[in-house]
Write a protein that binds this DNA or RNA. Structure first.
Length: 378
RNA sequence: GGACGGGUGGGUGAGUGGCUAAAACCAGCAGACUGUAAAUCUGCCGCUCCUUGCGGGCUACGAAGGUUCGAAUCCUUCCCCGUCCA
């Protein structure tokens, strides 16, 4: 089984419902991909992820390269075998770490020199190296190394980042295709990443340059790093309108529950975000009526489920009072149950989004989601 | 009965004359989190008043007295607690 992407339905907004076929399963899009940086979605077992219906998860090149090392993972049969995950995996390139570990790295045209956050040792991540690591990991979708900058950024900085990202993408593409050629064809898809900060023309320019390299899918990176939601949406639109309709578009690192449909309405097919998992560990639960900060004293005697409209196994069984107690007591089960619910909540929203596209209702669904969500905790 | 040691804010526990409404940690209350250096981080945490200010008043370091311009800190007595000796 190899790779393909097929658009099944389009909505008046520009949203698409599609089917992404990988060697590790067929994924219905638009899709939300839970983040499992270190080869685990924190708080969830692979069994739980399957139960939740996660068809694809994220892992991270930089983290797995440092620990346990991509060669070890290759030796142990690749990332899927290593982590006993049957479904698809997308690996991020380490480009986000250029941004998030800014104090620990130095960028040159050659690549990024990192000081390991684990032991301080120095490592050079180049576009070729990032591709090589991801080939060793054997993820289904590999991302090119990009330069992700903070927003807002001065125009010159954004221009330089686009230039570098394009050059790096070219090198990564070349390396990847050479390696694939030696192995008798690609066992992996590689996506390019559009940068350009909040400058519409730079975004378009970045997209055009990447299009020349003929990637099977394109990502929009460097967004949701502080700019207003409307700007994120506008930048996504600038890019998706230029991208080929028959290839998947991935908006990296988004978003809040009430924003997901907005991105889909801009023609986005794939998203990922640490929010549902991280917020869960920090006692923030997402519900159909807004966020529930479960540690709040108001939930001490609350016998209701986290979300009365949720059918997840946590909501079917446990009360808010119990969840609150687990968090107050610092019990690890608190994080597990909360993560389970939040991921289910995100995946449920995506199911509803796909359905709304089929019926041409996405705009309605998006505004309904916003309104319901703004209602605040019940 | 005697000898030491000790009693500090909800808890543990610093502080041994003014910079102390009193460190730090915990608990408590509230908030943040967007391609994960995050089971993390931030703020508040005696009462009260207002013109919300590195503002005013009150109460507070076992109890009561005292010394001092000034005391959680020094002195006296008392009450508790711990260890050891009889």
């Amino acid at each position: 089984m190899s790779f393909s992407f097929e658009v099944l339905h389009s909505d008046p907004t520009g949203a698409r419902r599609g089917k992404l076929t990988t060697p590790h399963g067929v994924i219905e899009t638009p899709v939300f991909m839970p983040v499992g940086t270190a080869a685990t979605v924190k708080g969830l077992t692979q069994d739980a992820l399957e139960e939740l219906g996660a068809g694809i998860i994220l892992a991270n090149t930089y983290h797995l390269y440092l620990r346990p090392g991509h060669e070890l993972i290759r030796k142990l049969g690749g990332l899927h075998a290593f982590m006993a995950w049957r479904n698809a995996i997308l690996t991020d390139s380490g480009g986000y770490q250029v941004f998030s570990l800014s104090e620990l790295r130095k960028i040159t045209d050659e690549g990024v020199r990192f000081r390991s956050h684990l032991d301080g040792s120095e490592h050079l991540l180049t576009p070729e190296k990032a591709a090589e690591i991801q080939l060793a990991l054997g993820s289904d979708i590999a991302m090119v190394l990009d330069e992700c900058i903070e927003t807002p950024a001065p125009r010159e900085v954004a221009e330089a980042a686009v230039k570098r990202t394009t050059e790096w993408a070219r090198r990564a593409r070349r390396y990847f295709l050479d390696a694939a050629g030696r192995n008798g064809g690609p066992a992996q898809w590689q996506f390019g990443i559009v940068q350009g900060a909040t400058f519409a023309d730079l975004r378009r320019e970045s997209a055009r340059q990447l299009l020349e390299m003929d990637f099977p899918g394109y990502a929009v990176g460097g967004l949701a790093v502080g700019e207003p939601h409307e700007v994120t949406c506008k930048m996504a639109t600038e890019v998706t309108t230029l991208l080929p309709k028959e290839r998947p578009r991935y908006l990296m690192g988004v978003g809040r529950p009430e924003q997901l449909a907005d991105y889909v309405a801009r023609g986005i097919d794939m998203m990922d975000c640490v929010l549902p998992t991280r917020a869960a560990r920090h006692a923030c639960l997402y519900t159909s009526e807004g966020r529930v900060l479960i540690k709040n004293a108001r939930y001490i005697e609350d016998q209701r489920p986290i979300d009365p409209n949720c059918a997840c196994s946590v909501c079917r069984r446990y009360t808010r009072a119990y969840l609150r107690h687990l968090f107050a007591a610092g019990e690890i089960t608190a994080a597990i149950l909360a993560t389970h619910h939040n991921v289910r909540f995100y995946l449920d929203i995506m199911r509803q989004i796909r359905e709304a596209i089929t019926f041409g209702h996405l705009a309605n669904f998006a505004s309904e989601l916003r309104v319901r969500y703004a209602g605040g905790p019940a």
